[in-house]
Nucleic acid binder design. Structure first.
Lengths: 189, 189
DNA sequence: GCAGTATGGGACATAAATGTCCCATAAATA
DNA sequence: TATTTATGGGACATTTATGTCCCATACTGC
């Protein structure tokens, strides 16, 4: 449940991760990318790729799974349950930005997650939602809109800022601050 | 320059529009949709589709063009130059929500617009940007972040809310109000 | 050095989407 | 009714991604 490394040794584990990482990165930018493209990006032969993931669907599933794990680790490290909601929220933003590539892959195409809505991960349903609800209960966050909407709005802003950064429209170091500013206070002055 | 209907009569014009509309709708939900899928959605034969648009690229270009026209009309009707920036901004949100489908198609995949950044439409570069800059100059909007970022943030929120609505997560009538609320004031209370 | 493992690359078959061509037919028009 | 126009559908070649197989070659640990 915690990891896929049952008894996978050295090299195999390393190339597997290289493939998964490259696939996430490439597919985030182009959902229609070829397996050959991914193999090149991962710096492995196409044969090797097929050796690890028999077909495209298997690879896709694995990348989704892996991306969720990466995302989950980042969120766990952010310790969203600790401290004032506002500060936790800022850590959340930073954590999401850190895994921007994976976010872009997971949520770039709604079809990617199709069947996964609420059937997975029975424990710890939504760390972000929990934080937002806590903030709403403490009167720190807007309670007139749903927690789900707030989370979606946050993801959308992070996603957009990462995209802007990827296209050189915004310096990478500014992502977190910009998102936090707009997300917290909106654009009115 | 103003339209593609040089002397296209009756039936042709009608099926052309049917194809464009169906293509936008289908492609918004699945960028990898087949030409056959689009033909079915438009209720025409695949041959007919090829008769109007020789190949996939031609169709894509036409759908993009058409979507921009629809978007442009909606923005023009919003008369963003008139009245206080805040009210104009709210009309802008409503206008964007109205053409949510086209937005979802145009901006759902960053690759769709690839080469189009600032080379097109020399006149009226960006109605939204102009409004935002006006608002910033008048001290109504946040001037600490770029106008481009504000516009992207707005589109992201509209896009996300439309998606939520499309999946039944939010009533359609709430889209505009929710986006405006979060966009203007953020989530802090 | 030697066995076992991991890999890259080529050859190949298959499936699917695409683009082209042609013909029969329905609809509009004169 | 006769003619033009628009269409649907089938047949076909082409292209492209995919998946499989096989072999030579590194690399690893003994």
């Amino acid at each position: 449940m915690s990891g896929t490394d049952t008894q996978e040794s050295g090299a195999r584990s390393r190339t597997r991760r290289a493939i998964l990482s490259a696939a996430a990165s490439v597919l985030a930018r182009d959902r229609t990318a070829t397996l050959a493209d991914i193999a090149v990006a991962a710096d492995v032969g196409r044969s090797t790729l097929h050796r690890y993931f028999p077909d495209r669907d298997e690879l896709l599933k694995a990348v989704i799974e892996d991306s969720f794990e990466v995302l989950y680790e980042s969120l766990t490290a952010a310790a969203l349950e600790d401290g004032p909601p506002l500060e936790a929220m800022r850590r959340l933003v930073a954590a999401l930005v850190d895994v921007g590539d994976r976010l872009q892959f997971l949520f770039g195409d709604p079809r990617t997650l199709e069947g996964r809505e609420s059937t997975e991960e029975p424990d710890d349903p939504q760390p972000g939602i929990a934080l937002i609800e806590r903030g709403q209960a403490e009167g720190v966050f807007d309670a007139e809109v749903s927690a789900a909407w707030i989370e979606h709005a946050l993801w959308a802003l992070v996603y957009t800022a990462c995209e802007d950064a990827a296209r050189g429209k915004m310096p990478r170091h500014a992502i977190t601050a910009t998102v936090i500013r707009t997300f917290e206070k909106g654009i009115l002055r």
